[in-house]
Computed example of a mutant assay.
Amino acid sequence: MKLNYHKQNFFKNTYCVFKAVDLELLTDKRPNFTSKSGSKYFYTDEGVYRISSHWGRAATCRWRLQTDDSTARNGAKAGFANWTSFYKDNDVEKLYFIQKSEFTHKYEYFHRNEPSYTTAYILRTAAETRKVLQQLKTITTETKWAKYIPHDDLEDLRNYLINGLITTNKKLPELRRSYND
């Protein structure tokens, strides 16, 4: 069952990806709420605008901002999310899957209730997801790990490991061993 989020509950244990907006949209507006850390919130019938210098973990929430640096001023960035874009978050349920973001072209985590989820992706807890994301970062940005795996094509090896990590429950050592099988 999907919870209905609104201005009184969206900030309690939720996951959301906010879309970047120009700070100028909110210049003349008074925030409905300002947090202790200085984040400003502006409520609408459709959703919420947030101006903040910190994204990612926000209190009990996982909120990410899809942005490029051109939308920032003095470190503060503005984003908007529809109320329907908020999903429940906790550390015990398998709520997250990993895929390559169409926006950043990096591997990121997403909530199972997002429209892009398919059963091809493995669901994991937040802690398991963080571990796999760290492994993916190493695989995609470094090469020294590859010298321990016999291969003729680094990109083929990378693709094999990445696909295995995001679509199976196999651990990285098992995937490494099975590459040449």
Rank of each mutant, 00 (worst) to 15 (best):
T60Q: 02
K19Q: 14
P173M: 11
F18N: 04
E128A: 07
S39K: 09
K137L: 11
R158P: 04
I51Q: 02
I122M: 15
F103S: 05
H111V: 06
A81Y: 03
I51G: 01
V17C: 09
N82D: 08
Y96E: 05
I162F: 05
F33M: 11
L165V: 05
A78S: 10
Y121V: 08
K88N: 13
T14P: 04
Y148S: 14
T71E: 03
R30Y: 09
N74F: 11
N169P: 00
Y109C: 09
W83Q: 03
N163E: 14
G164L: 08
G38D: 06
N169A: 09
F42C: 03
R176P: 00
K147E: 14
F18P: 03
F33P: 01
T125W: 08
A146S: 13
R64F: 15
G38P: 03
F18Q: 04
K19M: 08
S178G: 02
Q135P: 00
E108P: 01
M1Q: 09
L65M: 05
I162P: 10
S101I: 04
G164K: 07
Y109S: 06
K2Q: 13
D153T: 05
F86I: 02
D156Q: 14
F80N: 02
K147D: 12
K171N: 08
A126C: 10
K171Y: 11
T118K: 07
P150K: 12
K29L: 12
T71K: 05
V92P: 00
V17M: 04
F103W: 07
L23V: 05
K147C: 00
V132G: 00
D68I: 08
L175S: 11
K137H: 14
L65N: 04
R112Q: 14
D156V: 10
Y117V: 03
S116V: 10
E142K: 15
D22L: 11
E108M: 12
R176E: 15
N169H: 13
V48L: 04
L157G: 02
F110E: 00
T44H: 01
S70C: 09
K2Y: 10
R158H: 03
E155L: 12
D156P: 00
K29Q: 14
N82T: 06
G38C: 04
L133A: 07
G56D: 02
I122H: 07
T71Y: 08
Y107Q: 00
A126Q: 13
I122C: 13
G79D: 01
K29P: 03
L157H: 03
L3Q: 14
Q135E: 15
T34Q: 12
T129R: 09
T119H: 12
F10N: 01
H54T: 07
S116A: 15
T167H: 15
Y87H: 12
R30G: 00
R124G: 09
E142N: 12
T67G: 07
E93P: 00
I162R: 08
Y15R: 03
R64Q: 11
T27W: 10
I51C: 02
I149R: 08
F86D: 01
N163C: 10
Y43L: 06
Y41Q: 04
T138F: 07
E142V: 05
P173D: 10
K100G: 01
Y43D: 03
T140I: 09
R62T: 05
K170Q: 11
L3S: 12
D156N: 13
F110G: 01
Y148C: 02
G164P: 07
A59S: 14
G47Y: 01
A127Y: 02
